[in-house]
Simulated assay, not measured.
Amino acid sequence: MQLAGYDPKPAVLEREFNLRWHGKPMTLHGVRRWLLGEAIPGQDKIVTLAEWLGVSPQSLRYGGEAERRVEERTSWWDEVFRSQERDVVAAYLELPQEQRQALRKIILALADRKEEEVGA
């Protein structure tokens, strides 16, 4: 809230959240529990809070550090895999489970074969 220019006070949070929330309004006590970490808003409320504060829902739920770790782990995908390889993986994930298992066996068999050829 402070980074977005708001005082981190329950009354401010209650007012600003309820202006943007289209469900049952939150009480002062309820938002106070959020601020104290005694309660966690549901995902739908986290999305509303994130839109208001201009942050990702993930950073509100898990903290900025957790979000950065996830981004670091997934960034290798774009660095390592070319577009064609990403297309193949996406197609693989759309296959039924039985076909995925069969394809996995084929790929592993080819990988073993290739290792034998390289070692020879």
Rank of each mutant, 00 (worst) to 15 (best):
Gly5Gln: 02
Tyr6Leu: 06
Asp7Ser: 02
Pro8Thr: 04
Pro8Asn: 11
Lys9Gln: 02
Pro10Lys: 11
Pro10Thr: 11
Leu13Trp: 07
Glu14Ser: 04
Glu14Phe: 00
Arg15Cys: 01
Glu16Asp: 00
Phe17Asn: 03
Phe17Val: 08
Asn18Glu: 06
Asn18Asp: 00
Leu19Lys: 09
Arg20Phe: 01
Arg20Ala: 10
Arg20His: 11
Trp21Ile: 05
Trp21Val: 08
Trp21Met: 13
His22Thr: 11
His22Ile: 07
His22Ala: 07
Lys24Glu: 14
Lys24Phe: 03
Pro25Gly: 10
Gly30Asp: 05
Val31Arg: 15
Val31Phe: 14
Val31Ile: 14
Arg32Thr: 05
Leu35Asn: 05
Leu35Asp: 03
Gly37Ala: 02
Gly37Lys: 01
Gly37Asp: 01
Gly37Cys: 02
Glu38Thr: 01
Glu38Gly: 10
Ala39Glu: 06
Ala39Tyr: 07
Pro41Leu: 01
Gly42Glu: 12
Asp44Pro: 03
Asp44Cys: 02
Asp44Ala: 10
Asp44Leu: 07
Lys45Leu: 03
Lys45Pro: 04
Thr48Asp: 01
Leu49Trp: 01
Leu49His: 00
Glu51Thr: 07
Glu51Asp: 10
Leu53Glu: 02
Gly54Cys: 08
Val55Tyr: 01
Pro57Asn: 02
Pro57Glu: 03
Gln58Ser: 08
Gln58Thr: 06
Gln58Val: 05
Arg61Glu: 07
Tyr62His: 12
Gly63Lys: 13
Gly63Ser: 11
Gly64Ser: 09
Glu65Asn: 07
Ala66Phe: 07
Ala66Met: 06
Glu67Cys: 03
Arg68His: 09
Arg69Ala: 14
Val70Gln: 12
Glu72Gly: 13
Arg73Thr: 00
Trp76Glu: 08
Trp76Asn: 10
Trp77Cys: 08
Asp78Gln: 11
Asp78Trp: 08
Phe81His: 14
Phe81Met: 15
Arg82Phe: 12
Glu85Phe: 15
Arg86Val: 05
Asp87Tyr: 08
Val88Gln: 09
Val88Glu: 03
Val89Pro: 02
Ala91Met: 10
Ala91Leu: 12
Tyr92His: 04
Leu93Pro: 03
Leu93Ala: 13
Glu94Thr: 03
Glu94His: 11
Leu95Lys: 04
Pro96Ser: 13
Gln97Met: 09
Arg100Glu: 02
Arg100Met: 02
Arg100Ser: 00
Gln101Met: 09
Gln101Ser: 10
Gln101His: 04
Leu103Pro: 11
Leu103His: 12
Arg104Gly: 10
Arg104Cys: 13
Ile106Val: 15
Ile107Tyr: 09
Leu108Tyr: 12
Leu110Ser: 09
Ala111Gln: 15
Arg113Ile: 00
Arg113Pro: 01
Arg113Asn: 06
Lys114Ser: 09
Glu117Lys: 07
